[in-house]
Design a protein around this nucleic acid. Sequence first.
DNA 1: TACATATGATCAT
DNA 2: TGATCCTATGTAA
Length: 265
Amino acid sequence: MPEGHITHRAARLQGRELVGHHVTVVSPQGRFSDSAARVDEGKVIRVYAYGKHLFYEFASGLSIHVHLGLFGKFRTSSAPFPEPSPNARLLIQTDTYEVHLTGPNTCELLETDEVDGILGPLGPDPLGEPTGGDGFARRLSTRKIPIGRALLEQKVASGIGNVLRSELLFLVGVNPFTPAQELDTETVERLWAQTVRQLQFGERTGRIATVIAEDQPASAADETPEQRGRYTYYRDGEPCRRCATPISVNKIDSRNIWWCSYCQQ
DNA sequence: TACATATGATCAT
DNA sequence: TGATCCTATGTAA
């Protein structure tokens, strides 16, 4: 589920319903109960995302910090509300709308300076700061590690996940194992521009889909949901949509990365 | 019933 | 590099 587009989309859609309202905050599962009680009946003044982090800011100055991790999911509903899962870590309700959160990596209550401590180390967010390309380039220029690894480091750019890193490197024609600092300026600029573009598209649609019309197969009936609309992700052994070379897969730091050995030399 | 797997990140060694 | 945390789902046994 969660790359940067998901948190930004969640912040936009949930913020529309929650900001300005006094909300009920509880933790059906129990592990966030003490914190929930401290903001229960409080007024939400802002819901925002930075990279993969999402914050609900209350008039009291306290903020709920959520990071979905690999398993976290939001479910939102209008009244009448469904029965909450007993695993729900967090449940936020107005009279007419609710946010239901399961499986987050992080769900904690923070003071303002603690929020700053979370945001401080993060690299530019392509959705929050589309003009952050210079900062992105600066951070890459000192890294000897493979670009495929650097893209997942949230201090390089915040919001890129495992789907997008494979797709981005295909779109700019770069081999994932190229040392980050060896990329030329023009390539890094194209990489940033694609990151902004793809995350913006994902924010609007709720899904990372990178394939342009002329590369789109006539029938996608035999494609899995993971493969659909993507050049490389989960397509190992399948023909490249541009050159028909079978897509390769390898591990970088125990996570799969897919690429085309012809288009990305 | 058990196991594998997943768009993440941290901490210990 | 490996262990660990978090949840849901699909497939194997």
